[in-house]
Write a protein that binds this DNA or RNA. Structure first.
Lengths: 231, 231
DNA sequence: TAGATTGTTAATCGATTAACAATC
DNA sequence: TAGATTGTTAATCGATTAACAATC
C-alpha cells in the first residue's frame, strides 16, 4: 500500500498530455471497476481485467500509466483505489450543476433519469417555450420559460446545459448558455453546434448516427462468408 | 458522368475491407450532405466540404475512395449521387423492422421520435412488463407483454430490437431477441451485453459514459493555460 | 527467496496527411 | 487547351501490442 518515495516521479511529471484514445476509454474502465467493486472484489490484475473487458492487458497497463502508477508489481491493482482515481480524473462528483433545455419527450426522460445524480451532477431545472407547461414541475424539477434561461444560469452558477431542443433552435440556445457562463453542453439536438471560439466543452449525442451504424452492421452481416468469429 | 471502362477496377476489387474508422465517419458525411442537398447545392469539392466539416480534404477523398470512385476529376462530387451512395452503403432505407423493449420514459421518447422512419426503419410495437400499460397504445404503437416478444418477432420478421429495459433485464431480453431471429440490437441499457457467438450487430448507447466524458472535458478546461485555440 | 505482475521501452500496426500524376 | 480536382501512392503520425527488466 505505501510506496517508497523513489518511485513517485511519474505521477508528477506525466501531466503532459493524455492521448484522446485513452480518455475515451476511461468511462468504460469506470463502469467495469464499479461493477467489480459492487461484487466485493478487492484487487485485480491487468490480465484478469483484460479478459473481462475484452481488451489486451498491455493496453490496460499502458492506459492506466498515463496518469501515474496506480498498480503494484506482483500484486495488481486495488479496485477501490483505482475506481476512486478514475472517478477523480473524470471529474465525477465535482458537483456540477445542470439545466435541461427542451422539455419534450427526451427532456422529460432525462429529467427522470438518475444518471446525473449518480455522477454527482445536480439537475436544477427544465426550460421550454411551451406556455402550458411553464410553471409546472416535471419529476420534481421546475419548468421555466426559455426567456429566463440566461439569468437563471448566471444566478445559479450553472455548469452544464443539456440541449434537447429541435435542431433549428440549438445554436441560439447554445449561444445563450455560453454567454451565461455554462462550461459544457450535452447536445442531443441532431445538429452540430457552431460556437465560435468560446472555451466550452461539447459532447454530442447523435442517436441518428448510431441507428445508421446499426443498419450498416446488419446489412454487412450478410455479405460476410459467415466466419463464426468468436472470442 | 459516364466513365470509360478502363477506370472501373476499383469499385469491383475494393470489396476487401473498409476500415472501421471510415465507417464510423459515414453517418456524419451523410448528415452534412443531406444538409447541403436541402440547401439545393448540386456539387461540392473535397476542399469545400473539408472546410464545412472541419476535416482534411485528403481524408474525405481517402474515405470516399474506399467504396469506389464517386467523384470526378476537375469537377468534384455530385451531392445527390454521393448522398444516395452513402445512404445505400449504410443500409438506410432497407425497410428494417424494429420493436422497442421497455416502455419507460426513454422507450416512450423513442416511440415518439421520427428518427426511425427518416432512416427507413419501421417501428412495429413496444413491449413491457407493466400490466397497466399492456394493451394500450403509445404514440400510435401497441404495447404488448414482454411474454409475447419472442413470438411477435418471429411472426413479424423483426430485424432490430431497441433495448430500453433496466440493466438487470438486458441480457435476458437480448437473448430472447436473438433467439427470435433479430439481427441487430440497439442497446440503451447501461450495461454490456454478453451474447456468446451469435451473428448479431450491437450498437451501445452509453449515455452515462458520455456525461462522464463531458465532466472530464469541463474539468480539464481549467487545467490548460488558456490557449485561445480556434479554427 | 521465488513468483507474480507492473511500468516502460521497443516493435508493429493502422490511420491520417501530404503530394502529385491521372484525368475530367 | 488550361485549370481544377480527384484517385492513389508515399510519408508521417499516433495508437496498439509485445517483450522484459524493475520491483513488490
Amino acid at each position: 500500500m505505501d510506496k517508497n518515495q523513489s518511485t513517485q516521479r511519474a505521477a508528477e511529471t506525466t501531466r503532459t498530455a493524455v492521448p484522446a484514445a485513452v480518455i475515451k476509454r476511461l468511462p468504460r474502465y469506470h463502469r467495469f471497476l464499479g461493477e467489480l467493486l459492487r461484487e466485493g472484489r478487492g484487487r485485480i490484475s491487468s490480465a484478469e481485467l483484460s479478459k473481462i473487458m475484452g481488451v489486451t492487458a498491455s493496453q490496460i497497463r499502458q492506459d492506466l500509466n498515463c496518469f501515474g502508477g496506480f498498480g503494484q508489481q506482483g500484486y495488481g491493482y486495488n479496485i477501490e483505489y483505482l475506481y476512486g482515481k478514475i472517478s477523480e480524473l473524470l471529474g465525477v462528483n465535482e458537483a456540477y450543476r445542470a439545466v435541461i433545455v427542451g422539455a419534450g419527450n427526451l427532456g422529460k426522460a432525462l429529467a427522470a433519469s438518475r444518471m446525473f445524480e449518480r455522477r454527482g451532477v445536480k439537475k436544477l431545472a427544465l426550460f421550454d417555450v411551451d406556455k402550458s407547461i411553464i410553471g409546472t414541475k416535471i419529476y420534481g424539477l421546475p419548468v421555466y420559460s426559455i426567456d429566463d434561461l440566461h439569468d437563471f444560469c448566471t444566478e445559479n452558477s450553472v455548469d452544464i446545459g443539456v440541449l434537447t431542443v429541435p435542431k433549428e433552435a440549438a445554436n441560439s440556445v447554445a449561444t445563450t448558455l455560453v454567454l451565461a457562463g455554462v462550461r459544457g453542453i450535452w447536445n442531443y439536438a441532431s445538429t452540430e453546434l457552431t460556437l465560435g471560439g468560446g472555451n466550452v466543452a461539447i459532447e454530442n449525442i447523435h442517436l441518428g448516427d448510431s441507428l445508421m451504424t446499426l443498419c450498416y452492421e446488419i446489412k454487412s452481416q450478410g455479405e460476410m462468408p459467415s466466419d463464426g468469429d468468436e472470442e
